[in-house]
Nucleic acid binder design. Structure first.
Length: 386
RNA sequence: UUCACCGAUUUUCCA
């Protein structure tokens, strides 16, 4: 039966559910009894093909045969439900899962909570969490809480995220770096910088995992809020704590400095990071190029772009859009246009941002002929005016 | 047989 399962899996992987089904029937004919593995494979195959009803009917058949559903099948069903599911299916599934009587820290439950969160079914996730909390004794894992905190933060429901965080602490669990990061991110996105800052201090006090990642979130947040002074204060604080900034941290710093026009500081940071052996990537270069474009220094912007190539980096659609925008702002439409035309030969396809930039620049120059011309060109690149 | 998330870069003076 192992052999049959392997073959069945191969058929499912190819998406040949017809074949898989026929093969399954044949298996029957040969008198080989399908086991739970067999059903899991079939159900997974149907779920991946988006045929939820077929998947469910095999699930029912499996139970009718007295085969006990295991944690794998629930993971498959939950994953499928999150992708294609309808409300009723979810409720029913949840009830079935709850009657399984798994231990609260069972990995299957963790994963289910996580999946519900990723699919935006936060209510289902919390329902499951409460169920786990009811069965006193063993607390759910950091992983489960982590998903819920991240889910709520992403949905901009920071208060709920905080509740979950507090419950987590009550259980004596140590939030992971990403739990901390999600919460801080949620606060920053809502503009609650002060709260984020205080929270981070508490996290550091408690010895939680606060590194360059968490600092980057706050530094970036303060730059966005327009408080570059405090952003820089945090940068120094980070270094004093012996946390060494990585490429992402440096890129965020450079980006923030460029946005407020502190080009010499940005360049200084750029030199500094190389000195520490960090290799600037597209994000770093794009930020810097954007800064020069903002200042109208297109010579330097273009020089950096060729420096990228020399270092083996490939300027991307962001780089190009930034430069095009730079020329557009100066109303140097010949240059903007020529860069646009060069995109194709370097394997780049202009996107909606490219077109919006060019069209709005031509409109500002009262050149409606060219503006309309670009609107017409959009569809050839698979763009629709938005 | 199911295995994720997680910080940095581009257009829209207005919204």
């Amino acid at each position: 039966s192992v052999t049959f399962n392997t073959l069945l899996k191969a058929l499912c992987k190819e998406g040949d559910m017809e074949g898989a089904r026929a093969f399954f029937e044949e298996m029957h004919g040969e008198g080989i009894a399908p086991d739970s593995f067999t059903y899991n494979i079939l159900i997974d195959g149907y779920m991946k093909a988006g045929e939820v009803d077929h998947a469910k009917s095999f699930y029912t058949e499996m139970r009718e045969r007295g085969l006990k559903p295991d944690r794998f099948v629930y993971n498959i069903l939950v994953a499928g439900h999150c992708k294609f599911g309808r409300e009723e299916d979810g409720d029913q599934l949840l009830r079935e899962v709850l009657t399984m009587d798994l231990l609260p820290n069972h990995p299957a439950l963790d994963l289910m909570i996580a999946r519900f969160c990723w699919a935006g079914h936060l209510d289902d996730a919390v329902g499951l969490l409460w169920h786990m909390l009811d069965k006193d004794g063993i607390p759910p894992s950091v992983f489960a809480f982590n998903s819920i905190v991240a889910g709520f933060s992403k949905a901009r429901m920071v208060d709920d995220a905080f509740d979950a965080y507090r419950v987590m602490l009550k259980f004596g669990l140590t939030p992971s770096a990403s739990t901390c990061g999600s919460l801080l991110m949620g606060l920053c996105k809502k503009g609650k910088l002060q709260e984020a800052r205080e929270l981070m201090d508490k996290m550091i006090e408690k010895g939680f995992c606060i590194g360059a990642e968490a600092f980057t979130i706050l530094i970036d947040g303060y730059f966005r809020k327009g408080d570059e002074t405090f952003a820089l204060t945090l940068w120094h604080e980070m270094e004093q704590k012996g946390i060494s900034p990585d490429v992402v941290a440096f890129s965020a710093l450079i980006n923030g400095l460029c946005k407020v026009g502190y080009m010499d500081k940005a360049q200084e940071a750029f030199v500094n990071m190389s000195r520490r052996g960090l290799v600037p990537n597209n994000f770093t270069y794009n930020s810097l190029i954007g800064g020069f474009c903002k200042n109208g220094n297109m010579t330097e912007a273009l020089r950096l772009e060729s420096e990228m190539r020399k270092k083996g980096l490939v300027p991307d659609i962001f780089t190009t859009n930034i430069i095009i925008h730079g020329f557009c702002k100066l109303q140097r439409m010949m240059m903007a246009n020529s860069i646009y035309m060069h995109m194709y030969s370097s394997g780049l396809v202009p996107d909606i941002v490219t077109y919006n930039t060019l069209i709005s620049a031509y409109c500002k120059a009262f050149d409606m002929v060219n503006a309309v011309d670009f609107v017409n060109k959009m569809s050839a690149d698979g763009c629709e005016p938005d």
